[in-house]
């Protein structure tokens, strides 16, 4: 029944978080800081992961396409759809859960064990709203852009790797990525991204906010944040795919 306790406490935490903020100007500064942190701070790892992910998808698809009746343009189609539908939104969210989720949990967890959250509460500040709401809003605003950048870089990585290895020509790959493009796939990917960004920020913040003890427990909260966020991302990936694509 432990999970039921955490589920209930999570919803109470969420409810308290969305209580009206005291002063919008204070939240705005936090929001802008988090936008920078989540957006520019994540671009490096997202770019690196996306380029190599696209490269591997393209080369593996070529390697598996042994049927001479299937045109090589299909490699572009497969790479594009895999990247847009699954790899960019889901894999990038898992990467961001590791990078941003652990950072949120350890930041808030440290504030909890060093009584900084108590200091906020004594001043009459809604600590969950002050600390978490700007992070949630920033993630909801910036993660879709990060994932769109990841899509472009993934497709670009596939083109670079395919042409550099000589397994597919530039024109075949470009024809492939233009063929039978379904714009709704991008919408679906963004719906997933928004859901995952909510999971990453709120689950990680919840873990950090309810840390008790010292440095060891902050580490545990950070690990739990990444583990639970990743598991929930995979579960919701399945649920959303089932609900929207079938």
């Amino acid at each position: 029944m432990n999970w039921l306790f955490h589920l209930g406490r999570y919803w109470i935490f969420m409810k308290e978080m969305i209580i009206k903020p005291e002063k919008f100007s204070i939240y705005w500064k936090q929001f802008v800081r988090e936008l920078d942190n989540f957006g520019f701070g994540s671009l490096g790892i997202v770019a690196l992961t996306s380029v190599f992910m696209g490269a591997v998808i393209t080369i593996q698809t070529v390697y598996n396409l042994v049927n001479p009746l299937v045109p090589l343009e299909a490699v572009g189609i497969v790479a594009r759809d895999s990247i847009i539908l699954e790899f960019s939104p889901t894999m990038m969210s898992l990467v961001l859960a590791g990078k941003i989720g652990s950072s949120i949990a350890s930041e808030i967890g440290t504030m909890r064990v060093t009584e900084q959250i108590d200091a906020l509460e004594i001043m009459g500040i809604n600590s969950s709203a002050y600390l978490v709401l700007p992070k949630v809003m920033a993630a909801l605003a910036i993660f879709p852009f990060v994932v769109i950048i990841s899509m472009f870089l993934g497709i670009f990585g596939g083109w670079v790797a395919g042409t550099a290895a000589g397994v597919i020509s530039s024109s075949e790959y470009i024809m492939g990525i233009q063929d039978s493009f379904v714009p709704f796939n991008v919408v679906f990917a963004l719906i997933k991204t928004i859901t995952f960004s909510l999971i990453i920020t709120t689950v990680s913040a919840y873990q950090g906010y309810h840390t008790q003890g010292g440095a060891l427990e902050v580490g545990k909260s950070s690990t739990n944040a990444v583990v639970y966020s990743s598991i929930l991302i995979l579960i919701f990936d399945y649920i959303l795919t089932q609900l929207i694509l079938t």
């Binding site: 504030m111 009584e115 900084q116 108590d118 200091a119």
Partner: peptide, 19 residues
Amino acid sequence: RKPFRQEIGMVFQGGALFD
């Protein structure tokens, strides 16, 4: 409690300054 809270100052054991 909000009006009371704004009249309360507290010094914590470790300071609890915002890092």
